[in-house]
Structure formats: C-alpha cells, structure tokens
Write a protein that binds this DNA or RNA. Sequence first.
DNA 1: GTGGTCTAGACCACC
DNA 2: GTGGTCTAGACCACG
Lengths: 125, 125, 125, 125
Amino acid sequence: MDIIISNNADKPIYEQITSQIKAMIMSEELKAGESLPSMRSLAKSLHVSVITVQKAYEDLQRDGFIETAIGRGSFVSAQNKEFYQEEQQRIAEEHLQIAADIGRANNIPLSKLQEILTLFYMEDE
Amino acid sequence: MDIIISNNADKPIYEQITSQIKAMIMSEELKAGESLPSMRSLAKSLHVSVITVQKAYEDLQRDGFIETAIGRGSFVSAQNKEFYQEEQQRIAEEHLQIAADIGRANNIPLSKLQEILTLFYMEDE
Amino acid sequence: MDIIISNNADKPIYEQITSQIKAMIMSEELKAGESLPSMRSLAKSLHVSVITVQKAYEDLQRDGFIETAIGRGSFVSAQNKEFYQEEQQRIAEEHLQIAADIGRANNIPLSKLQEILTLFYMEDE
Amino acid sequence: MDIIISNNADKPIYEQITSQIKAMIMSEELKAGESLPSMRSLAKSLHVSVITVQKAYEDLQRDGFIETAIGRGSFVSAQNKEFYQEEQQRIAEEHLQIAADIGRANNIPLSKLQEILTLFYMEDE
DNA sequence: GTGGTCTAGACCACC
DNA sequence: GTGGTCTAGACCACG
C-alpha cells in the first residue's frame, strides 16, 4: 500500500489517505473485490493512529468506494466510476472558475491563462 | 464600507474582509491616504467580533496595504500594485495547476478545460 | 444443507446460519433426531470459519433447537414449537411497534400503514 | 437540550443523540437558524466524551440538518423536510415488510397483525 | 485476527 | 469561547 503522508500538508491526514486510495481504485491499481489492508496494519505502517485510518475508511465506505465487514476486513466495491468522474470534473471547473475570476480582475489576458493551463497539463507531473 | 460577509462560506470571516478591502484598494475605490473605518465601527456594522476585524487589519498591515497608527486609526498605504498582482497571478496559477492535474488524471481533454476556462473568463458579473 | 450466506447482509454470519437452520427445523425439512452436518464440513461448504459455525450451533443448542454430543455430532431436538412461534410473534410485534412509532411521528395515517402491511402480507415473495 | 442517553441501548450513543436532535428539528422544537449547544457543553451535560458528540454533529451536518462553523458553533439548517419524511416512511415500510414475512411464515393471521399495529399506533406515550 | 464504539486527553484555527 | 484534527489507549462483537 503505497500511501504518502505529509504532516505539513494543509490537508488532514485522513483526507490524504482517502484521496490516494480513491485514486488507486479509479486507476484500477486496486480492483473491485480486492481487500484493503486492515485498519491496524495500515495505521502501523503509516505511523498514524488507528482512528485516523478508521475515519478515512469510514469516508470511503460512505462514498461507496469500499465495503467493510466487522471481523472480515475492508474490500473495494464494484465501482460506479461515472459518479466519481463527474465529481472530479465539477471540482476542476470550480478551480477554473476561480482562476478565470482572478485573471479577469487583474487584467491577466485569457491567452496567458490558457498558456499556463496548457503548460501544466503537458507536464509529466 | 460595502463588505459582504457570508457565514456559510468556506473562507474564514477575517479573510473575507481582507480580500474585499484589498480589492477596493486595487480598484482605487479606496485611495492611498484615505482612512478606513475604525475596527469597532466596522465590527459593529458587519455584526462581527472586534477580534475578527483586528485580525483582518493586522493581515492587511503585514501585507503593506494599510498602515495603522495607535489612536489615529488605519490608512491606505501608498501601494505598489505589482506585488499584489504577482500574488494574484500566483494564486490563479495554483488553481490552474489543480484543474490541470484533475483533468489529466480523469482523461478530461485539454481542449475541454480550455473551453470551460474561456467560458468563465467571458462571463459578465 | 442449503444455507445461503451473504457477506453484505447487515446480519452477522452466525445469525444467518442459525435463522436458516431454525426455519428448516420448524418447517420439518429437518426432523427431530436427524443429525446435522459436522461443524467442520458445514464450515467448509459455506466457506466460513469453523468458529462461526461453532457459535451458530452453540446458539441453537442454547435455544433448545439442537443437541450436541461430543464426538458424536449434533442432532435436532424434539422441539416444542410453541416457544419458537411465540418468539417469532414477539419479534414481529417489535417491528410493528417501530413502524407504528415512525408512522405516528411523521403523520403517516394508520390506514396507509395497514394498506402497506396487507400488501406485503399478500405478496408471494 | 432534553436528550436522554441510555448506555444499555443497542444503539450507539452518537446515534441516540442524532436521532433525538433530528426529531426535535422535525417537530420544530428546534427551529431553523437556532443555535445548538456547543459540543463541549453538550458533552458535559450528557456525561459523554466530546468526540461522541462531535460524531453526532458531524452526521447531522452531513445529512443537512445542521450547519457548523469553526469558532461560531452549530446551527439548525433551513430544512428540506420532505426528504427526511420519505426516508422515515421507507424505514417504516421495511419494518412492516419484516413483520409481514414473519407473520406469514408462522401462520399469524393478517387480522392479528393489523390489530397489533392499530394498538401500537393508538398508544399514547 | 477484524472493524465499531468510546474515553480522556491534546493542539490548532477561528471568533 | 467555538469546532477540526489527532493521539493513545480501551472494550465490544464478529470471524
């Protein structure tokens, strides 16, 4: 389970966990039906409290990414990918909206914004 | 002082105040040398705690937008606009970066992002 | 032994086992004196832990549905059906109580509840 | 805040809190815009951990019953009552379904179920 | 072993 | 003062 935790990030730890697991599920690095590490083992390997992992798993379950069963562990759900991707697109649009607003308010030409966006999109990460 | 406070916003109240005052200064609705309302009167008119306004004024002073003199009130500084605009551009870039990352991770084509960005940029409001 | 286990059910596995065996006994699909499958073989065929079957058998024995003899296996008891049916009626009453409470609290008319109940009762399943 | 906590109930404490607050909101004992007790004060008065109350408030917020703001407290939302009542009716139907199934399986006549249901519905309390 | 609930503390950002 | 996050424990039901 390759999850990277940063204590300095602005995001809470449990959210760092959920977003990375969501990404693994969407990229099918984790496939439907596969089991996730137990809360305790993941907490240990991330050097994090069990409760923090529990909160992450709880959120993932509520959002339909995983299913958990007492005594048996947690498993990747058969996933409804469309919902997740629509949500992601909505989030991307929000950020574009903010960037556009700032740009307009500060006389940054649209062409410059487009250029920057293209640059970031092309980056190999 | 036309400042609008939203209790449901995700931004803290003091930040809603600073960003709106910054915008007024940049648009020269508030000109260099003009005095700002006293903390107490602004707090009263916004139905907000004095401490909250104090934090907002503190931040504005730290960023060089205003100067505060004990017993005399707060005044708009002679402003170097470049700094502000560079900061704004940096913020816009951050949002474009996030949008680009999400788009790439979810197979949203660059052209679609460009299209959405243009749409938002052209919007009135 | 036709027992169906669902991992997604809200009921624990051992309870799924007990309730289905109870039903078989009450319907005389399993008759008094007949032997039940051994814990190990049932666990194997259900793809379930032996401990889970053990707990199910324990509960059945406690409730007087079966008798377990060390080294010889488990057998259906001569059953007094009244007790079971009274228990079942008590459970049914609990559910009716909850439905009535919710209905009253939310202004669902009694006639509507009656109608729904009748509908479900008439269903061929 | 008249909330009754039972440590022997089968429901977890945080759920006892949420369900009672939901009921108060739906009955307009708590009206939209009113503030709820702070997590700490409620925890103290219920002799319960702060975290337990926090979990309750978190769930209420996620279900749209209340809004919470850091530093300001928690408030009753303008409520979409229809959704809640539909949900409650769905729950009532589930219980009627179970009662009907048990009744049919144990030869309890429909008329008897109807009678019990009516009795419970008429009860004061 | 697993997850679910709860406690008693702590530190942080915000008002 | 408020809520948000996190820790290090504990006990329970389930497998």
